[in-house]
Amino acid sequence: MKTWLFGLLWLGCWVPLQAVEQVLLFNYQQKPPYIVDEAHRQGLYFDLAERLNASLPAYHFVVREIPRKRLDYLLSRDQMHGLVVGVSPDWFADAARHRWTQAFIDDANLLVSRSAGEVSRLSASSLDGHRLGLVSGHRYPELKAVLRHGLVRREDAASEAANLERLMRGWIDATVVGVRTMEFHVQHQPELRQQLFIAEPPLYRYRRHLLVPDGYAGLLPELNRVIAQLEQDPVWQTRLAHYRE
């Protein structure tokens, strides 16, 4: 009798766990505040996964890193087993092939140079003849015309943080940094306010979405429902404020 009851209890616990479907949120931009500490699951992408998990208990959303080249390869062959988090359709030549959620956050790209020195305080119109640090594999629609002319030398690095370091060492003359990422770095390194010059207006304003491959089309309405509620979600708003304090 006890064995029979134990079996029923075990089955009752096992069935709901098996019913939860894991959904990977692939990310190719390893930068704060979106990814702050991957080992400790800190950053806005992890916070977004947590809000999705809280609102959609039939799924378990997990953030995973993926190189941009690998991402493009899988998308081109319809082999993407998961969603892509924090992206804009402008960054994908085949954007029309995919589904996109509502935007969950606004962002912008800033042109950053040194505030003093022989080469400093650059603008988009004064980049000719200079070294521009960008992130390898990333598309910059706002710089397409500038780079096409060949008068600006593109020098790639692995991240925006690496480019900021190269800028301060004088190895490049300017770089492009997301406004939320710049805010995060300045928050933790206040001296950057005096050392760096940020050209106005921003190079490019955009919104971040989730890219939804065809195999996950059924999730789109539920994803949009949760994203639409984020503006009034106190937990999400607290996390946004945390990274800007």
Score class of each variant (00 low, 15 high):
G7R: 11
L11K: 05
L11D: 04
G12H: 08
C13H: 08
P16I: 07
Q18E: 10
V23L: 08
N27M: 09
Y28I: 03
Q30D: 11
K31H: 05
P32T: 06
R41Q: 15
Q42I: 12
F46S: 04
F46N: 08
L48T: 10
A49R: 05
E50T: 14
R51G: 06
L52W: 10
N53L: 08
A58H: 15
Y59F: 15
Y73A: 09
L74D: 12
D78E: 15
L83K: 09
P89H: 11
D106L: 07
S120H: 12
R121K: 13
S126Q: 09
G129K: 09
H130F: 14
L132A: 10
V135G: 00
H138E: 03
R139V: 14
R139E: 02
L143Y: 02
R154L: 08
E155K: 02
E160I: 01
A161W: 02
G170P: 09
A174W: 00
A174E: 00
V176K: 00
M182W: 15
F184H: 09
L192C: 04
R193W: 02
R193E: 07
P201T: 08
P201S: 05
P202A: 05
Y204R: 01
R205S: 05
Y206K: 01
R208H: 10
H209I: 12
P213Q: 07
D214S: 13
G215F: 13
A217W: 10
A217R: 15
V226S: 04
I227N: 03
Q229Y: 05
Q229I: 04
Q229R: 14
E231P: 00
E231K: 11
E231C: 00
Q232P: 00
Q232T: 10
V235I: 11
H242F: 15
E245G: 12
